[in-house]
Design a protein around this nucleic acid. Structure first.
Length: 755
DNA sequence: GAGCACTGC
């Protein structure tokens, strides 16, 4: 096994320590004698202490020296020699490091000193699941290396490439960005080492990258790979990345630096976890030492509700016993809150009302966002009811939905750990220890097992993966999920019948969009409405733009009605965006119309990015001047992407049946259609209190037959009202298509006037 | 007559 071999080539060069005789050349050149991938800890420490920064040739600053002293105290720094021994001898390493080990900032630097990418026109990449992490870690590492961010050390995220080609050799990036690069350069030739950080989070992009990198390691023996993860998952990754079938990849382990957290369980299961959570928070406030509380709940409504109740009950307690109960503030936290509100979690706890009075306390009530994305210092108590909203995918009806489900053991541990960041803490689990041991899954199912994979499959095919079913996944998705994705891509003509990428599919893959949206956008010039489809696509790619504050629902609905287009919600989105652009001079326009300025600005940003991609692939930007014709064209273009998301009205009660999948659905209450058209196309199927279709536009069956003849081949339909309705259209259409076409339109117009 | 858990391109 390579792991245990002596490396004879290493001995000759490991003499660069400052304690020994320094070669005269090394006095000027800190990296003198460094051989790529044969570098040892002594040499690197010598370079770190050197007068001169080897990458800028400038003298090191005071700040550099100060940060270096702090770096030396990190657990990972003490294991530098061990790291180089393992790194030099292995192509793939799995590394575990608990929070506070310094792995994210230090390991990529260690690698850079060994790879010497700046001398070989290469890059070391380190991926992160989130943009903010990529940005902030890159900034920190640039400071540590005494270089300017964006030069030797940079980052690359969607909408922002903070790197300098030819200069940057250490790059932090989102996992999604690296996946995009792999699509166009499957060998990732620019990189000497690729580090996947936070691999235990198992994002879709990280999982796919692990598969691609495992295969790539066999083609590129010069490429090194480091998988960084939390402890629990290490063995799985070691086995997966073992290059021989029986050998596991070596493990590099670094202890963390956190404080102990005492865990408490309830004696009995709690029937109402929200009620129990509120009770526990108040119990802590009354009985425990000072320190802030973090409570995990599942969603916005639950959180706002709990905050109100906690506030009310805490005020009661204070009134009853003002001498022993301190003031309490309750701060909600979830992603759709505006950033200014999210900042409140960093406010200090309220101070005591009198100099010797009981101290105040801060309670943060949060979704899972506080489990990974955001860390709040000062948390000493965590209340964990054991639930979160999780995405589930049903490939049979192609529906993703959110379900409140029990969390995994790994997730529970992560939550508990949030109590021990600044000092020893306590975690109150609102379930029994027995349930923790026997009912909770070890790990949260990776995203790849819970998602619609249409997008991913297209990316993989573009990256040159021929056989998706036999691809070496860390966890293989259900075959039906893959079949559903392949089927969709085939109907969209992105893949041919043999599963090969078509020229259309190759362009579709270049757009950061779901395949349906990409297809619709690419064909839209044929309908002379690509400007408008571009806008609609952008609006569909950002969070909901409609605001509906609890106490102003009527006003919000009225404002929305003024912007609505009766033919369909897609056209309403177009109208909203155009109005937004026309009123840009008015800073309050979005707010006075109950629209999210943040989401609209995002749509504008996305639109610019998509526009650049359209220009690169020569997808024309065109419009029709006459509004009525334009709207008609837009609705036709929609059919080219979303013909598999059509519903047909059944009976008079306003219920619809989705075509082919035969799901009974209702129009979502947010739908702006002023009648109930016989045929509609929808953007999404949501499963909440009932099955709903959301963002809906009226279409004509003739368009479906015309633009998606394969999917609307009547022989493929089960008998039923939908098939009979389509059959009638086919019969009428034979011979006099144009007349029927305009007739249907005026019929719909009349109906609308009546309503 | 209701909801965006969280990310990412």
């Amino acid at each position: 096994m390579a792991f245990n071999q002596q490396n004879s080539t290493e001995r000759g060069v490991s003499s660069g320590s400052k304690n020994k005789n320094v070669h005269p050349a090394a006095a000027k050149e800190p990296l003198y004698g460094f051989m790529p991938r044969k570098v040892g800890g002594d040499q690197v420490r010598f370079a770190l202490e050197h007068e001169i920064n080897p990458f800028t040739k400038q003298p090191h600053t005071q700040q550099y020296r100060k940060i270096l002293e702090a770096r030396k105290k990190l657990p990972v720094y003490a294991q530098m020699d061990e790291f180089y021994k393992m790194f030099n001898r292995n192509q793939i390493i799995v590394m575990v490091g608990e929070t506070g080990s310094g792995k994210t900032t230090q390991i990529p630097q260690f690698v850079a000193y060994s790879d010497l990418p700046h001398t070989r026109n290469k890059l070391v990449a380190c991926t992160q699941p989130r943009r903010v992490a990529a940005m902030s870690v890159a900034k920190r590492v640039a400071d540590e290396m005494d270089v300017q961010l964006g030069r030797q050390v940079g980052y690359s995220i969607r909408f922002e490439d903070m790197t300098e080609p030819g200069t940057t050799f250490l790059k932090y990036m989102t996992d999604g960005m690296l996946l995009r690069e792999a699509m166009n350069d499957p060998d990732l030739q620019r990189y000497s080492t690729i580090i996947l950080d936070e691999a235990h989070e198992r994002t879709l992009a990280t999982d796919i990258l692990m598969g691609l990198l495992k295969a790539l390691a066999k083609r590129r023996s010069d490429l090194k790979i480091i998988i960084m993860s939390a402890t629990l998952d290490a063995l799985k990754f070691q086995k997966y990345f073992g290059l021989a079938s029986d050998a596991a990849a070596p493990l590099f382990k670094v202890p963390g630096r956190t404080h102990p957290v005492e865990v408490f369980y309830t004696q009995e299961p709690e029937p109402d976890y929200v009620e129990a959570a509120i009770r526990t928070v108040l119990m802590i406030h009354r009985a425990e030492d000072p320190g802030d509380i973090l409570l995990f709940l599942t969603g916005e409504e639950e959180i706002e509700d709990a905050c109100k109740k906690i506030k009310l009950e805490a005020d009661d307690l204070i009134n009853q016993d003002p001498d022993s109960v301190g003031p309490l503030i309750c701060i909600p936290l979830y992603s759709s809150l505006p950033p200014s509100q999210q900042q409140r979690i960093f406010d200090a706890a309220p101070s005591a009302r009198t100099p010797d009075g009981p101290p105040g306390r801060k309670v943060v009530v949060s979704t899972n966002i506080a489990e990974t994305s955001l860390t709040i210092d000062g948390i000493v108590y965590v209340v964990d009811p054991g639930f979160s909203k999780q995405k589930v995918y049903n490939p049979r009806i192609r529906v993703e939905s959110l379900l409140v489900s029990p969390i995994s053991k790994a997730s529970a541990q992560q939550r508990a750990g949030r109590a021990g960041r600044t000092r020893p803490g306590k975690c109150f689990r609102l379930y029994t220890e027995k349930d923790f041991m026997s009912e909770l899954e070890e790990q949260t199912h990776p995203e790849i097992l819970r998602s619609n994979l249409a997008n991913t499959v297209l990316e993989l095919v573009k990256a040159g993966i021929k056989d998706l079913v036999r691809f070496d996944y860390v966890d293989a998705p259900a075959p039906e999920t893959l079949m559903r994705a392949l089927e969709l891509l085939n109907y969209l003509a992105a893949l041919d019948d043999d599963g090969n990428l078509t020229p259309l599919g190759a362009i579709m893959a270049e757009f950061p969009l779901d395949p349906q949206l990409a297809k619709m956008l690419i064909v839209s010039p044929e309908f002379k409405c690509s400007n408008e489809i571009l806008t609609i696509t952008s609006m569909l790619s950002v969070p909901n733009v409609w605001l509906r504050p609890n106490n102003q629902r009527k006003e919000a609905d009225a404002a929305k009605a003024l912007l609505s287009i009766p033919d369909g919600d897609h056209l309403t989105l177009l109208n909203v965006y155009n109005n937004y652009m026309q009123n840009k001079y008015d800073k309050n326009w979005a707010w006075t119309n109950y629209l999210s300025a943040r989401a609209l600005a995002q749509a504008e940003n996305v639109r610019e990015q998509l526009k650049r991609t359209m220009e690169r692939y020569e997808v024309e930007l065109v419009s029709i001047q006459e509004p009525r014709k334009l709207y008609l064209a837009v609705r036709q273009a929609l059919c080219c992407g979303f013909f598999m998301q059509v519903a047909h009205k059944e009976g008079e009660k306003g219920s619809y049946l989705t075509v082919k999948d035969n799901q009974v659905v209702g129009l979502h209450p947010s739908c702006g259609l002023d009648n109930q058209p016989e045929w509609v196309i929808f953007n999404e199927f949501v499963l909440t209190t009932r099955p709903y279709i959301r963002t809906v536009t009226e279409v004509r069956p003739e368009w479906l037959l015309e633009y998606a003849p394969l999917y609307f081949d009547l022989s493929s339909f089960a008998d039923g009202e939908t098939k009979r309705a389509l059959q009638r259209v086919v019969n009428k259409r034979s011979g006099k298509f144009d007349r029927v076409d305009s007739g249907a339109d005026s019929g719909a117009q009349k109906k609308r006037k009546k309503a």
